[in-house]
Write a protein that binds this DNA or RNA. Structure first.
Lengths: 136, 136
DNA sequence: ATGCTTTTGGTACTTTAGTATGACCTGTTT
DNA sequence: AAACAGGTCATACTAAAGTACCAAAAGCAT
């Protein structure tokens, strides 16, 4: 946000500089008016592209971040959430257990709790629901 | 693609028109040179924004639409693809069979083939890989 | 027509996944 | 201290999922 303001400020300065430059050039007669306008046109074309790119990259990132509020609303604990992430990665209960240094039994417990909390019948359905909630 | 070319053509025409207009205005002396440049700057700023928006909306939509070429490269058949979609919806083999009016055995056959073709060990992993390939 | 691929479906089997229940330990709250 | 929540793990069970192998019907291309 601050960055955008700074960039805008610089653009305004550039605009003023161009005005001065073009005025001088016309007065001194060593540059044609068409060239001055063309340069301004090109510069502001790219300024437009740049500004839009900046503002758009923010909009793009919005759908990517996770809904932490929703996770809490569903009473999903930290450990359960870790397991959920691994499920979405396609790991088996055994593999998840190895990654978290716990037994397969423990993972099964977590998975069962996740299924109840997400109201899912299967782990595949849990992944789908979790993605709809944007929690993964 | 064609649309972009047409839009570009119109912009070039606009550019030429502006040149004529500004030249006339300066000669006739009823418009200051600063104003002319300012107008050009503003117009091309918005042109830049518009062009970037157009090109970006295409980039945005690309991740959304499916890579049909990849599906064919993986030798995934129509039926297998249907099953794959239902897997990603979180359905069980039985439920998929009911939806496609085939037996659970048939679905199992398809699922096994999908796993081999996607090089996955589990249906959850198949979903993850399929999403990476952008085929679902 | 005759290969070819796809789709279908079965049997028999092994492996995961998931449920139910109970237990123990550890911080945190009351 | 007692209650509570979170995490751990086990046993025993049922239910899906997945593999292997086979076989037949249907669709299609040469």
């Amino acid at each position: 946000m601050k960055k955008t303001i700074v960039v805008f400020g610089l653009f305004i300065l550039a605009l003023l500089s161009l005005f001065q430059l073009s005025k001088y050039s016309v007065v001194s007669g060593d540059m044609k008016i068409e060239n001055a306008i063309a340069i301004v046109a090109i510069i502001f074309f790219f300024i437009g592209v740049y500004i839009h790119k900046k503002s758009f990259s923010k909009i793009e990132k919005e759908p990517e971040d996770i809904d932490i509020t929703k996770i809490k609303d569903l009473d999903i604990t930290k450990r359960e959430y870790e397991v959920l992430k691994f499920i979405s990665e396609g790991l088996s209960n055994k593999e998840i257990g190895d990654k978290l240094f716990v037994s397969e039994s423990t993972v099964k417990t977590h998975v069962s709790n996740i299924l109840v909390k997400l109201n899912a019948k299967r782990r595949t359905q849990a992944v789908k629901i979790a993605k709809q909630y944007q929690i993964i």
